[in-house]
Amino acid sequence: MAKWQKQIRTWIGRYFDLPSDVMLDLPRITTIGSIHVYIENHTGLLHFSDHEVRIQYKQGQVKIIGKDLGVKMMLKEELLLEGEIKSVEFLPEA
C-alpha cells in the first residue's frame, strides 16, 4: 500500500515538475559553506551535542558531525545549526 502510494507520488512529481521535497516528504538541507546547516521538513531532533546532531525525517535519520555545534534556532519543522560542520550523513531506514 505504502509502496504504491510512493510510486504515485514520484510519478506526479515528475509529471508536474514539482520539487521533490514537497512531494516526497524529504528534508531539504541547505548548508552555507561549512558553518551553517539549514534543515527544513524534518520530524524531530533526536540527539544533539557539540559534536554530533541527529535528526529524524520520514524515512530515516540525518547525522551531522562537526565541532562546536549549536542550534541557532529551532522551529516546528525547521532547524538552523551553526558550528564547524564536517559531514552530513544519511541513515535511511531500510
Binding site: L45, F48, S49, L69, G70, V71, M73, M74, L75, K76
Partner: peptide, 19 residues
C-alpha cells in the same frame, strides 16, 4: 531532545541552544 521537540511542536521558538 524530546522535551525541546515537544515544545517546538506547540509552536514555541527556541534559539541559541548549547549543550
Amino acid at each position: 531532545e524530546p522535551f525541546l521537540q515537544a515544545c517546538v511542536r506547540r509552536g514555541c521558538v527556541i534559539s541559541n541552544i548549547k549543550r
